[in-house]
Simulated assay, not measured.
Amino acid sequence: MRAERIFTNARLATMDPDLPGLGLVEPGMVAQAHGRILYAGPMRDMQAEEVVDCEGRWITPGLIDCHTHLVYAGSRAGEFEARLAGASYEEIARAGGGIMGTMRATRAASFDELRRAAELRLEALLAEGVTTIEIKSGYGLAPEAEYKCLEVAKSLGGAVDVVTSFLGAHGFPPEMAREDYLRLLCEEMIPHVARHRLADAVDGFCEGIAFSPEEMAQVFEAATRCRLAVKLHADQLSDLGGAALAARFGALSADHLEYTSEDGAAAMARAGSVAVLLPGAFYTLRETRLPPVASFRAHGVRMAVSTDLNPGTSPLFSLLLAMNMAATQFRLTVEECLLGVTRHAAAALGRSDVGMLKPGAKCHLAIWDIERPAELVYRIGFNPLHQRIWSAA
């Protein structure tokens, strides 16, 4: 097949699992045809309609932000002030703030208002080389409001791959009894989301201030009946066995995980679930309990890194900064950070067509003005992106 475009005179971090480490190729080239990667590897002779000289720059796969709450209305800057004054995340939530505060603003906002606000947030991520993003609902907590948020998220896919997750199990709306909302989720909302293809997965928040493990099991059973993948906010504030619960249902990922036990890590390894680490929330909440990175390594659990972009606990709009935080706070290596926003982030979304420079993958590229890949993790507040390539194929 003749290439349509060749990116030549480059250095590649392919993230190819068949190569060691980051899959480095120097010098290298990438050939594209019909929106897919035709070739990625050492320099070779190849004809193409267009040749792009990368002048020695590095190419990585386009970055993947695999855990965001991008669609919401309102601001929680007041809660930030309250936390600085000593209030805890749990205290704020129990007083009607947190998720409930954002719920009220999101319910009141129109589709267009939500979309305009989300577009501005998304632009910041795209400017850093993000080509695939996961967007959760979870701030509506009522059927029409949740569907509206998912529809907004799906409408943002004009220049980025959007993966949507239904997070109706984010909290309990104040106007409904707990058991009534759980029944509504399982019997009406999840089937509607599946039937109308509004989401790729069902997510939940398993914590003392949210859903119990038994309640989350009911949500996951409903998702399984509707043939939707599952994932879980697990073990963020306490160890309720969330990681093991997620693994029992074959979850794509379990996220946060600061309190995950050795048994939970082992269960995730057996299930193949990805551990999504969210240093922005750890930083914002001034947590001290580190996620069990050593256990994840020992058991061979793949680790992803994400912004957790949300209005309250992680108002973080930079995946590059999230990598730096993961390295400095959680002691991830450069290799772990970069795999965490490419190949392992793709696995957390159930995707095998992004996150790697490999024949057949989508031609999603980030081209960087750097001397070595470690610069993407090392620098703070600096964006060395030269060009972002995204294909709709």
Rank of each mutant, 00 (worst) to 15 (best):
G56C: 08
D112L: 15
L349I: 01
L240C: 08
R297M: 11
E151K: 15
W368F: 08
L338W: 04
A223S: 05
G158H: 13
E81Q: 15
H386L: 05
L316I: 05
S165F: 09
T14G: 07
I135N: 05
T164D: 03
R5E: 14
G74H: 07
I367K: 02
R331I: 07
R5T: 15
A267C: 05
I135P: 00
L257Y: 02
V163K: 09
T288G: 14
F7T: 03
A326P: 00
S88N: 10
A73M: 03
Y89H: 00
P191F: 03
I370H: 12
A298G: 13
R83E: 08
Y181T: 07
Y259S: 02
H196G: 01
W58N: 07
A247L: 13
Y147D: 02
A271F: 11
V160P: 01
K148N: 10
H233N: 12
G241Y: 03
P279K: 08
R178G: 10
P143Q: 11
G340L: 03
R116D: 14
S306Q: 00
V160M: 04
L245G: 04
G312L: 09
M216W: 01
E119K: 12
R197C: 07
H256K: 08
M15S: 13
T106V: 01
K136G: 02
Y72E: 04
H196Y: 15
R178V: 09
R388V: 09
R121N: 10
E90A: 07
G280F: 02
P213T: 08
A85C: 10
G41C: 15
T8F: 13
R227I: 01
S318R: 00
A199D: 05
G168V: 11
L385D: 06
G272W: 04
A201K: 02
A271V: 09
V71S: 07
T260K: 06
W368E: 11
I64L: 06
D53F: 12
G96H: 10
V334E: 11
G140N: 05
D203T: 12
